[in-house]
Structures are given as structure tokens and as C-alpha cells.
Design a protein around this nucleic acid. Structure first.
Lengths: 333, 333
DNA sequence: AATCAAACTGAAAACGTTTTCATCTCGATA
DNA sequence: TATCGAGATGAAAACGTTTTCAGTTTGATT
């Protein structure tokens, strides 16, 4: 039944050397006489020997596998990060164990524990919030962890982000400069620090600088879904909003279509700026103006940072901010 | 430096039992006296013992990890499948090693080998084509493999799909019934069996039944990208196509926007039916009519099938076809 | 009290590597 | 020629589990 699997011992026997030597040639250790190396290599070829990574992991205490916790692969924003992570991981010979958390704290903790049990060499965490229990688990983990697209309010964990506050402030200023006095702020839960402490803060800052009074009726907390955005239209109209800064592209697409379907013209009657610059922004009509962030790079840089942490390299700055921008498309003037 | 990790041996010593007994309680083996079980459990709790999955994998020859090869997580179609796969995997206590292949044959083979080296218990493969080398690797793999959203022209590998030919035929019939005599067929490479042997076949079948001559000028081979679709507009116009069946939603969105941006009205001047019914179909305006397929379920069923294969259960039918449908939205009459 | 099967338990051998020492070989140096 | 050190090699001990097999208890039965 079980394929007779050829082991390092078989190779050693056939090549008439010790396991240690075979191990050396397999791992590219230079301390092997060229003739011996060739002999071993030939046997490996002949027997079609493939090192067993599990045994290797046990002996070396390194699995060359990293865990990735993602809210939902299906979300175009996170999948873009995931792609960056995987590419860099592959470049450094790591593999990715990918698990969806649905932002569910309990699931996150459980998933984290599974990953630790599997002895991953490191973890990249994506999510909007770090619950108390999760933070506790993070703390006791001996494994390096870096956050991607996820702020640590306590600023202690390695992370890769953009300056959300500044970006939102700039976007809102832009909207105000176009004459909008009533700009709606639409995001996911304000329980998430990224929304409460960064985006909303940038929003308020822009209002303040423009001398506009903050009106919490203009703040909409919802979930990050297309549907939720679509349903927001009546509420937006009832508070006389003429523009919105929105925290997620799918959500923004929903808002825009909701507004449009209600007979309003974007951007003439209602201007929109979204936040993630996923490819969705170019697929809808009108195309959506957006804060730009280097999605792929956030993932890539996070993974690169993790590789450094995993090999105990000293890292200059553990909390990196990547540049953002503002891309004007057809949903604003 | 290295956290003193507590092992099964520590637990055995503290609880004054053998490793075997500890192993039994950890694995829920019923042959343990309740008193002993409690004693062990208490020690486990006290020492915060976590079984090492790598050691476990080596000893038991099971890793409770499956490999998933995906062309690109960023593609909304595949990520939907991936989500189904991961959910079912988690339900059965498996984890997913996710790797992007970019449909690159060499990379696919390499990735497959890494996965085998990591001793995954099974593999789910997504992709449009199975190259010869890849098939060879599949054959020599002792590990069960199932294809998701990927046809095996030789019909020998376990797979989960819909009946692409029938679905396309129905869609094209629909278009023809609306009076379109010149329906374009737009897909990815015709080197892919799924396009050449299924979708195109359905297209031809529909034409034939309607008594329309097949014109290969109406067949467009391109890559699955939004951009590619957008650029197709002039070509479509030059062959007087008045409708199109399109093999991918992003591609379809590109075509639709290209056509629209050129001043034509969808569906009045040009009707479109796309193939994957991803959420993108509802986000664009007009919303796109689409062949519907149970994306999540394709992944979920594939993973479920894999669990059966992994536990050597007998499987009734290894090539399963899930039901499809036709969802009429605003891009057709 | 003797017997027996069923329920528990432990010793030790895998599992397939890496890694640490110790040893051995050999050419170069004094 | 004796000595030395670097380069090659091998023996065997980890690594942390599961699993087999042989025992040992236990409680009921006669």
C-alpha cells in the first residue's frame, strides 16, 4: 500500500557513505570531497530520493513554512496582500499555510494555536483588530509575527501599513476643496482601531483645518460589504451628504451604485473617494477615485520583514509605513 | 534563546505515567482509566503542553495538511473556490498550504514537488491546463489529488466542475434567441482543454442547432484580464459581433466597459453573458448576465472528496459535475 | 478461591532527518 | 622526517511523537 519511500539511509548505503555525508550534499555543505559529492548525487538521482521535510523539520526545528491569517481570501484587498506575501515567501523558499479567520476573535486564537502547533517559523497576521486574548497569544508566541495592513494601537508589534490618518485627511481635504460641506465618513466598525484611531482621526483633522464642525450623523459604521454600501443611500440622503470617504472598495462600489441607482449623478451630485485602490476601482463606472496604497508591496514587505525576524537579523524599524497617494478618477471632480 | 518547550515526556514524568498514556489521552483514545485521564489532563493544563505537530507527522505519517495549487489568489474566481476549500478543510481539521502557480507549468511541477516533500496528505489543484510533465508528476504521486474547476481531458483524475459545454451552449442559445446572428466567443487560450474541448464545443453546438455557420473570426483568444477585455472592442466591432459569451468575469467586465466606453449601449447594441457569476457581475453597471456556478461549493466539494480519498473511503463517482444555471441580469435582454 | 476476559498501562522501537563529536587522511611546513 | 592543521567522513545522539506488543489490573464468574 504505502509506496516504499526511499530514505537518506538507502542513499547512504547505496553510495557507501554515511547518512551525515548524504545530508551534507543534500544541504549543499561545502565540506564534501567533489568525488564523494558526485557519487552521492548519482545515487540520489538513481533512487529518485526526496528529502522528507517533516523529518527535516523535526531534526532542524525549522519548517520553512509560515502561517498567514487572513480575514477572507475572497476579499480583493486582502488577497492582493496575500499574493505579495506568497511571492516573497516563495522567493525565500518558504511556504504559506493560509487560514481564513473571518475576523472572528475566537477563530483567530484557535487558528494561531494550530499554526504554532505546526511549528511554523513565522506568522503574518492580517485583520482589523487585535483582541485582548489574541494579543495575549501573540505575546507568548516564541515565533516572530508581523502585521500586514493591520495597525497595532500599542505600536509594539512589527507591522507594515500606510499612514491611514494622513491619507484620509488628504482625501477629505480634497473633497472639501471641491465645495463639499457635508462629507460622509463610511467605514467598518469603529471598534477597529484602524477606523477609530486613524481614519476617523484624519477625517476630523481635515474638517477642523477647514473650519467645519464635526457632525457624527455623517459617520456611518457598517460592515465591509457591497450590499451594506448599497443600502446606505437613503441614510446618506437624509443627512444631506454630498460626498463620502469610504474605507473599503467593495463597500464603496456598493455606495456608488446605490446612489446612482437612486437617480443621483456621481460625481455631480455626489463625490466618492475610496481607500484601497484595488482593481475594482477601475471596473466600475464611473471609475472610483481612491487613496492608493501599494497593496502587493504591503504583503511583500511584511513577508520580507518576517524573513529578517526569522533569521534574527537586526531590523532598523519594525513598524514600516509605505507611501500612499491619491488617485483621481471619475467619482470626483 | 529557544523557549524551553514542554514535551510529552515532561508530561509523562510529572503525571507519573508513560508517554504512551499521555499520547492516548491527547488523542482521545478511550482505553484510559478516567482517573488517569484526569491526572494527565491536569498536568497538561499546568504545564501548558502543546503537542508538536511535526513530530506527530513524522511518527504517524499524517500531517493533516493539504496542498492547494492555485493560479492566482487575486483572481476572484479562484479565491472563491479557495474559500470553499479552506472552510471544509478546517471542518475536517486540515490546514491548507496555498501556492500560486501563475499557470506556469514549470512552477506547477516545482510547487507540487515541494508539497510532496512536505508530506501533505492530499492536494487540490486548480488551473486551466495539465501539462504533460505535470501529469507525469501527478501519476507518480502517492498522494491523492483532486482537481477543482479544472477538467481532466483524459477523465482519469478526480475532479469537480460544472458541465461547461452545456452551460455555454445554453447561454449562446439564449443570445441567438434574442436575435443575435453574430455571437462572439471570448475566452482564454484555446490550448486549455476547458476552453477548446468544452466551452467552444458548446458554442459550436448552439450555433449548429440554430443553423448558423461557425465563423472563426468570431472566436477571440486572450488572457483572463480586465485590460485584455477592454482592448477587444475595436476587433469586436470590426467583425460585426452583436453579442458575446465570455469565459471569465474580469475579462467580461473589461469587454463591457470597452464596448460601453466606445459609445455602444449594453444590452441594446451589444449583449453579454459571462461565465463565472462572481460578485463582480453585480458590481458593474449594467449588471452582467452570467452562467451561474456554485463557486464556493466547487471548492468545498473538491475538498470533501479529497478527505474521502485521504481516508481511503470508496468514492462513488470521482468526477463530479455540480449544477449550473443562467442568471439573467441587465447585460442581456 | 481460582479463572478469565476485558480494560489499562508501559517499554521500546520506529519515523527520517540534522548535528555534534571524534576520528581519519593528507599535503604542507619546520 | 616528524608535526600540524585543515578538510572529509562516520557513529550515534537528538528531535517529539505514535504505535506495537507484551504485560498488569480489575472485576465478574464459577
Amino acid at each position: 500500500m504505502d509506496k516504499q519511500t526511499v530514505t537518506i539511509y538507502d542513499v547512504a548505503r547505496e553510495a557507501d557513505v554515511s547518512m551525515a555525508t548524504v545530508s551534507r550534499v543534500v544541504n549543499g555543505n561545502p565540506n564534501v570531497k567533489p568525488a564523494t559529492r558526485k557519487k552521492v548525487l548519482d545515487v540520489i538521482e538513481r533512487l529518485d530520493y526526496r528529502p522528507n521535510a517533516v523529518a527535516r523539520g523535526l531534526a532542524s526545528k525549522k519548517t520553512t513554512t509560515v502561517g498567514v491569517i487572513i480575514p477572507d481570501v475572497t476579499n480583493i484587498y486582502f488577497s492582493a496582500l496575500a499574493r505579495g506575501i506568497d511571492d516573497i515567501a516563495m522567493m525565500y523558499k518558504y511556504n504559506i499555510i493560509l487560514t481564513n479567520s473571518d475576523e472572528n476573535g475566537r477563530k483567530e486564537v484557535q487558528v494561531l494555536n494550530t499554526l504554532m502547533a505546526k511549528q511554523v517559523d513565522g506568522i503574518v497576521f492580517m485583520g482589523n483588530d487585535i483582541s485582548e486574548e489574541l494579543r495575549k497569544e501573540f505575546d507568548r508566541a516564541k515565533t516572530p509575527i508581523v502585521l500586514a495592513g493591520c495597525v497595532d494601537e500599542q505600536g509594539v508589534m512589527p507591522s507594515v501599513n500606510i499612514d491611514y490618518a494622513a491619507a484620509v485627511e488628504e482625501a477629505v481635504k480634497n473633497l472639501i476643496d471641491h465645495g463639499n460641506q457635508r462629507v460622509a465618513f463610511i467605514s467598518g466598525s469603529l471598534d477597529y482601531p484602524i477606523n477609530r484611531d486613524y481614519r476617523l482621526k484624519g477625517y476630523k483633522q481635515a474638517l477642523k483645518k477647514a473650519g467645519i464642525r464635526y457632525d457624527d450623523k455623517l459617520v456611518f459604521e457598517t460592515d465591509y460589504s457591497y450590499k451594506a454600501g448599497q443600502l446606505l443611500q437613503p441614510a446618506l440622503q437624509s443627512v444631506n451628504a454630498t460626498a463620502a470617504i469610504i474605507g473599503d472598495d467593495e463597500l464603496a462600489a456598493g455606495v456608488m451604485n446605490g446612489v446612482t441607482d437612486a437617480g443621483l449623478k456621481v460625481p455631480d451630485d455626489f463625490e466618492i473617494i475610496t481607500s484601497n485602490d484595488t482593481k475594482l476601482t477601475e471596473m466600475v463606472r464611473p471609475k472610483m477615485s481612491s487613496i492608493t496604497q501599494p497593496l502587493y508591496d504591503i504583503g511583500a514587505v511584511a513577508m520580507r520583514l518576517l524573513t529578517k525576524l526569522m533569521s534574527s537579523e537586526t531590523v532598523d524599524d519594525k513598524t514600516v509605513l509605505l507611501p500612499y497617494g491619491l488617485m483621481k478618477r471619475a467619482s470626483t471632480h
